[in-house]
Amino acid sequence: MSAIDMKTPILIVDDYKTMLRIIRNLLKQLGFDNVDEATDGSTALQKLREKAYGLVISDWNMEPMTGLELLKEVRADTQLKELPFIMITAESKSENVVAAKQAGVSNYIVKPFNADTLKTKLTAVVGDF
């Protein structure tokens, strides 16, 4: 578990701007103000290699690079492999969860979700904040 503080940069990744806005606002309510956005996996990967983030919160179903592919890239990168990675997705089938777990996901939130779930999962991944 890697602790983060309210100033730790967080990258949120989703191809739906509405969802980015929801997550950003909910994080803001929890006290996290330093939030960047990306709308697909490849853009996210580029941002992760350019800046030191403390957490990634990513959707699964995106093009050209999916959230799962992004997760695998992150875990295969020596500089990023320890980065906490939460998947927030509508993919709720068991095989999806298993695939994400096998790829090294830190936690998994299924859409639709509420603020309490986000807070609980954040705490489970990065500790109390």
Binding site: D14, M19, K111, P112, F113
Partner: peptide, 17 residues
């Protein structure tokens, strides 16, 4: 109440998918 509205707005993502 605002938080609940944010949560509810997730419908747009789900219906879109």
């Amino acid at each position: 109440a605002v938080t609940r509205v944010y949560e509810a707005c997730g419908f747009q993502d789900i219906t879109g998918q």
